[in-house]
């Protein structure tokens, strides 16, 4: 464990917390007799969270962490895996089933089809993998799928003209997590013998590059002190 990996995991954890905080805010708004300014904004505009992306992440974690009961690496790893599995499935549950949270989800804008991402990733995992076993192919599939799972969210952000502050922070934290993982790989490459993982690196690099455009607009909105808006 190095500082980049730890910082990456922590930003990933923070991104999940930001989403849960957002859901909590939407929930707590129900039945209030006084207007809560944040909830009002969240309910008036759609939440801007892509259910498609959240479902893809749930699938990513479910296929990647199949080893949770068979291979023990560390208490830290096991706890983090449980957190990511639990949070991703509960976020999907909230958006689909929770009475109030569901209402803030804009279904008509979030039109990306899972199928277009899942199928190519599955085929690619069957062809390009380190070992042709059930667990290994699914693990590779989870890496490919994670690389592109943010696409429905980025498309939704571009469509939603008014980007909610928390949604912007969420995407920024996810992008930061990926960038820190690349630093972690560079560090490990120079400090650990035989540390070469082409599949992980290339899919991780592709994933980080998808955030480049968002980062550009995120930082320029910070610099100019204006609300984040992506060009149409």
């Amino acid at each position: 464990m190095n500082i980049f990996r730890l910082a990456g995991d922590m930003t990933h954890l923070m991104s999940v917390l930001v989403l849960l905080l957002k859901i909590h805010t939407i929930k707590s708004c129900a039945g209030k007799s006084y207007p809560c300014s944040l909830c009002f904004i969240l309910l008036e505009s759609s939440s801007g969270i892509s259910l498609k992306t959240q479902e893809l992440y749930a699938l990513v974690f479910a296929t990647r962490y199949l080893d949770i009961f068979t291979d023990f690496i560390s208490v830290y790893n096991t706890i983090m895996k449980l957190i990511f599995l639990g949070s991703s499935f509960s976020i999907v549950w909230y958006i689909r089933r929770h009475k109030i949270v569901r209402r803030s989800y804009d279904k008509d804008q979030d039109t990306f089809r899972h199928f277009f991402l899942v199928l190519p990733c599955l085929l690619l995992a069957l062809i390009i993998n380190e070992k042709f076993t059930f667990k290994e192919v699914l693990w590779t599939f989870s890496l490919y799928l994670e690389a592109v799972a943010i696409l429905p969210q980025l498309i939704l952000l571009q469509r939603t003209r008014n980007i909610d502050n928390l949604t912007g922070q969420y995407v920024f934290l996810l992008g930061a997590y990926r960038a820190l993982y690349i630093l972690n790989w560079i560090y490990r490459y120079f400090t650990e013998p035989h540390y070469v993982h082409w599949i992980t690196w290339i899919s991780g690099l592709v994933q980080t590059l998808l955030y480049a455009d968002f980062f550009y607009y995120y930082f320029s909105s910070l610099k100019n002190n204006v609300k984040l808006k992506l060009p149409a």
Binding site: D9, E136, Y181, E192, H194, T200
Partner: peptide, 10 residues
């Protein structure tokens, strides 16, 4: 020490 896979990451 060789590590065939990066399964120690999250």
């Amino acid at each position: 020490k060789s590590q065939p896979l990066a399964h120690d990451e999250l």
